[in-house]
């Protein structure tokens, strides 16, 4: 046991390990919270697209010789603004995102080709695709921390209207919530989040951290705050677990991204299973609250309505 602790303390003296854990922790917290809104707003595809756009940004930055983080921030924020202004409704939005995504992928491949023409091979680009948490530097950690804290503060400021607009955009709009502005702001925040996450798990797996903890949490609880807390906990467990497994390397030195994605999927499937098992009882609880609120205009919207599961679907 003492040997084990010694081993760990020794491990944490390496700067690489410290950086990895610091960046990983910050990213896990932000993705879990942002992910909750992503799942509520059904914007998983937007998250995936922004991550892939980050790939184009990182390879473009490599061609220009600037830091890949800057390239990713630039392109993802630009794309987020574009997607926010182009697409409004769920159906149309999907196609707009797809078009922006395919163009960005084309650009990414082009940059990768140009970059590998310069003599160096394509490992940089492949590192961006698959994640390279071991190459995170101190300055990257600092940028991650600053951006993460900024995102958290902004989210805390717009928390209530954003939650309302995410759960029921139509009702929120009639009640004067600036839904359109919030959706663009959210996409920009999502862009910054994905750019940070790419550092840890790579482009291909951003979605694992973004969706899996939050989707599992939504399956397990319908209260927003409980879900968010649960989501953060799961996210931290998944990230730390992945990092520890990868560093200790008991079962061979597999990449961090693999552990994280496998743990995320496992987490989601377990929570779906748990949810299916206990769902009959929960549905029995709902009817009275729905039948009592037939006159929506006289009373403010009851908070319990906001916490039922996926009410946005009823409007569809």
């Amino acid at each position: 046991m003492i040997e084990f602790i010694d081993y760990w303390l020794g491990l944490f003296q390496h700067e690489v390990v410290q950086n990895a854990f610091l960046a990983g922790t910050m990213v896990a917290i932000i993705t879990a919270i942002m992910g909750y809104f992503v799942v509520l707003r059904a914007q998983a595809f937007a998250g995936e697209a922004l991550a892939d756009i980050g790939f184009a940004g990182a390879t473009g930055a490599a061609v220009l010789g600037v830091s890949s983080l800057i390239g990713m921030f630039f392109l993802t924020v630009l794309a987020a603004l574009g997607m926010g202004t182009l697409g409004e409704r769920i159906r149309g939005r999907d196609v707009e995102i797809g078009m922006v995504l395919s163009f960005a992928l084309g650009l990414g491949v082009l940059f990768l080709t140009i970059y590998s023409q310069f003599g160096s091979n394509a490992t940089e680009g492949v590192g961006v695709l698959f994640g390279s948490i071991l190459s995170v530097t101190r300055s990257d950690v600092l940028i991650t921390l600053v951006c993460g804290v900024a995102i958290l503060i902004l989210l805390a400021l717009v928390f209530r209207p954003l939650l309302f607009a995410s759960i029921d955009p139509e009702v929120a709009e009639t009640r004067g919530v600036p839904v359109r502005f919030l959706s663009i702001l959210f996409l920009v925040l999502l862009g910054i989040t994905t750019a940070e996450t790419v550092l840890v798990v790579g482009v291909l797996l951003v979605l694992a951290l973004l969706i899996a903890p939050a989707a599992s949490a939504v399956q397990l609880s319908h209260r927003p705050l409980t879900s968010i807390l649960l989501s953060v906990t799961l996210g931290l467990l998944i990230t730390w677990g992945g990092l520890i497994l990868a560093f200790v390397g008991t079962w061979g030195h597999f990449p961090v991204s693999f552990y994280i994605s496998a743990a995320s999927a496992l987490c989601y499937f377990i929570s779906v299973g748990v949810n299916r098992l206990r769902s009959p009882r929960r549905y029995r609880d709902i009817p009275p609250s729905c039948s009592t609120c037939s006159s929506p205009y006289a009373t403010p919207i009851p908070s319990r309505l906001l916490s039922t599961r996926e009410p946005a679907n009823m409007v569809d």
Partner: peptide, 16 residues
């Protein structure tokens, strides 16, 4: 969308 995302990232993790 969530299901697609989870399945995709899981298989990509396997791919890596």
């Amino acid at each position: 969308d969530t299901a697609i995302g989870i399945i995709m990232t899981f298989t990509l993790g396997l791919g890596i």
